[in-house]
């Protein structure tokens, strides 16, 4: 069976496309899938450093497209997992180095050798975005619960629909449960009301994401990362499993714990 090409895109930059691509790659590979994560951000590559594979790049996506190497030679194997590969972007070229047709051909070749190709799209709606979306079987749109990111996500969802690649599914990233609880952040239902799209997962804000990027070890490889656990649930849903949506709760504050103690003692301190 040919592999599935899933493109992760957002419109707005900095909402977590690369982090999501790396972590979903790890999660699917841990489930025994053959996975290639593809950096389509030519000229501004970053998936390599987030994965911790930046020192092993010899060939890149543009080399493979232009025939300077075979596709297999450009794929860097992640030794932490049996079947996880990175196809890095070229750093010294720009978006015009590759056409939509070339990306489609490249991904057709990838379909023959992997179960999943996860394509990390560049921000924006220009050539780089179109290259990332052209070969996709499915689109995951990622947003944060902020007005600017949600607005851009809506634009992308519309574009994906217009190109016949829809319906896109949504990941809400960097949700802060404490802010949601006090009414200062859009909650999951608010975002879904506005965007009218299917949800595939909600990832809480987690400092471990920055720590893991510092170390080049995706959070899904770590135990005890809340964001990593959320990516595991999303991975299950991508595999067609029915994974219940858990409510993300803020840890109780010092004052709330104090109040709990106070109430438990019947106010008898």
């Amino acid at each position: 069976m040919p592999g599935r090409v899933i493109t992760i895109t957002s419109g707005k930059g900095g909402v977590g496309k690369t982090t999501a691509t790396a972590n979903l790659g790890v999660v699917l590979a841990q489930r025994g899938m053959r996975v290639a994560v593809v950096d389509a951000d030519i000229g501004l590559r970053n998936l390599d450093v987030v994965m911790g594979l930046e020192n092993r790049i010899i060939y890149d996506l543009v080399d493979a497209v232009e025939g300077h190497c075979r596709l297999e030679q450009a794929l860097i194997r992640d030794k932490r997992l049996p079947e996880l590969y990175l196809l890095p972007a070229a750093q010294t070229r720009d978006k015009s180095a590759v056409s939509e047709e070339q990306m489609c051909e490249l991904c057709n070749d990838l379909r023959e050798i992997v179960d999943f190709a996860l394509v990390d799209s560049p921000a924006g709606i220009e050539q780089g975005y179109r290259n990332a979306v052209a070969p996709a079987d499915e689109i995951l749109v990622i947003t944060t619960p902020e007005v600017s990111a949600v607005r851009d996500a809506d634009r992308i969802i519309g574009l994906v629909e217009a190109e016949g690649k829809g319906p896109a599914r949504l990941i809400i990233n960097r949700l802060k449960p404490a802010m949601v609880q006090r009414g200062d952040m859009l909650d999951t239902q608010d975002v879904l009301d506005v965007l009218a799209v299917e949800l595939v997962g909600v990832v809480p804000e987690d400092e471990k994401i920055i720590v893991s990027a510092n170390q080049g070890r995706p959070a899904a490889l770590l135990n005890g990362s809340l964001a990593g656990q959320a990516f595991h649930r999303i991975g299950g849903r991508l595999l067609g499993e029915v994974v219940p949506f858990v409510e993300l709760k803020a840890p109780p504050s010092f004052l709330e714990r104090l109040l709990d103690i106070f109430q438990a003692t019947g106010g008898d301190l």
Binding site: V147, R151, G183, D184
Partner: peptide, 24 residues
Amino acid sequence: RLFGHQEAENRSKDVAKQRLQVVL
């Protein structure tokens, strides 16, 4: 007040949602 819970009419997320709906 102590825990930062806001009154319903003060929640900035409601403003965000309403503004988003118009702009979209």
